[in-house]
Design a protein around this nucleic acid. Structure first.
Lengths: 148, 148
DNA sequence: TATTGTTATACTCTATAACTATA
DNA sequence: TATAGTTATAGAGTATAACAATA
């Protein structure tokens, strides 16, 4: 490689970020993600947690499973689901196979709400849709590598 | 390009993720980041919020600034800083130039604690350190693009 | 008057422990 | 006995409104 090209390469290539710098950027990104999510949920009078639960209910699941996915004690889920149910966004259905289990199901209104929250998030993170195929693959790989 | 190579390329190259799939992965990554952060803070008897405040105090700053960075009402910061101060992790210093302002400062013990939290996070996200220069650059660029 | 920080209040999220209904 | 869910409780985060001190 010629000296000229080496110098050009040196000038255009920025120094790679340190792991500490990436950690900082991850912190900002995570905060930004939840800020968007909280705003989108708030537009429907929902808290971040309530929005999270709606988002998890792509299919009905037991209270216990919700607690595991939210990484919180099962007793908390009772209150969160209570408040969602009071607004007719979800309902509890006793499992016929094991009457101890209550499956939480999105109502039609709940489905509509989660749809709107997702749409709003998509609008906010427009940059995600503007990535080309190569960038999407790279982003997927890197996220999967750091958060396996 | 020969048909053989085209087929090989088709077989090895996975389909790029959709924006919706990336959104899902971002949600998981953000949740995982805060899970790690909450665990690291919890090891010092701190909540996620208290850990966040310590992490922000690289330099002293007014309560008001903290509220802006945390994206919460200023009244909340009073309680959070109260609890950190009760444990001698921070102290309030009235600004001599404007006596309305109280600057929050890390104590030596606070510095030690935030150091340990960061160290633990680094241990947890080892994958971050194992990325090569190219991947670090790409990750930085992509994060910056999606969360400007 | 405007701004910084605090207090009071009400609601939500959180973990722990004790309880019930079911298996 | 073991598991799923609830209740009771106490502590922490949250927004709103009203307030004191300072500019």
């Amino acid at each position: 490689m010629s000296i000229i090209l080496a110098i050009l390469g040196f000038m255009t290539e920025s120094a790679p970020p340190t792991p500490a710098q990436l950690m900082d950027q991850l912190a900002r990104a995570a905060a930004a993600y939840y800020r968007h999510f909280a705003v989108a949920s708030g537009e429907h009078g929902l808290t971040l947690m309530q929005g999270k639960v709606l988002g998890l209910l792509r299919r009905p699941m037991p209270m216990r499973t919700l607690a595991e996915l939210l990484v919180c004690d099962a007793s908390n889920v009772t209150g969160i689901v209570d408040r969602l149910q009071a607004r007719d966004l979800v309902r509890r259905e006793t499992d016929p196979a094991d009457r101890r289990i209550k499956n939480v199901v999105l109502t039609t209104e709940g489905e509509r709400t989660v749809e709107r929250i997702r749409a709003r998030l998509t609008t906010d993170l427009t940059a995600l849709e503007q990535l080309d195929d190569e960038d999407r693959r790279a982003f997927q790989r890197l996220l999967g590598q750091v958060f396996p």
